[in-house]
Write a protein that binds this DNA or RNA. Structure first.
Length: 161
DNA sequence: AGCAAGATCGGT
DNA sequence: CCGATCTTGCTG
């Protein structure tokens, strides 16, 4: 996922709901969560019904509710039994993971969807202009301790901040 | 069954 | 800085 995550900003999240026009948003900000060692990653707590899909082969969606209010949109990126995921933190027009899922109507029903085979939601690489991707520390994970808190695993388009 | 905590956000 | 709001996972 440290191979996948930096390449996501600049690509297009596409949603094609029946009866609605195709919608596409450029991904502007993501964060990588990698493996059971990463104390910021939910999988560090073990394999549970919620984190199950993270242990699958990459390409599926990991969705969960945070603070009882906001749905978080993640893409599983690891091989089987190697739990890794990328949190989509922002797209053009929606800055922030909570606002993003609210704006795109992402909820529990997207859990486990395979981006490769789904005709509802997928990631598309359009013309890649000269997009500069910057990196920084992940947000909202102070509980993970200094080592993991300070990893430069957030990647974002230089424009959108 | 009860409880503590959370990859956020918007308002004081 | 603080509360909203509810699912999850752990304890008993």
């Amino acid at each position: 996922m440290l191979e996948v995550a930096p390449g996501l900003p600049g690509r297009y999240l596409s949603i094609n709901k029946p009866g609605f026009p195709l919608q596409q948003w450029m991904i502007t900000e993501v964060e990588a969560y990698r493996g059971s060692d990463d104390l910021a990653c939910h999988a560090s707590k073990g394999r549970t019904p919620r984190t199950e899909v993270m242990y699958h082969t990459g390409g599926k969606l990991y969705i969960y509710l945070i603070y009882g209010i906001y749905w978080m949109l993640n893409i599983v990126t690891g091989e089987a039994d190697n739990p890794q995921a990328v949190l989509i933190r922002g797209v053009t027009g929606f800055d922030g993971p909570g606002k993003l899922s609210k704006g795109l109507s992402i909820d529990r029903s997207f859990y486990g969807i395979d981006l490769v085979t789904s005709d509802l939601i997928w990631i598309e690489e359009k013309k890649r202009e000269s997009i500069k991707v910057l990196k920084g520390t992940r947000i909202g994970i102070d509980y993970a301790g200094d080592i993991w808190k300070n990893k430069q695993w957030r990647f974002f388009v230089s424009n959108s901040e």
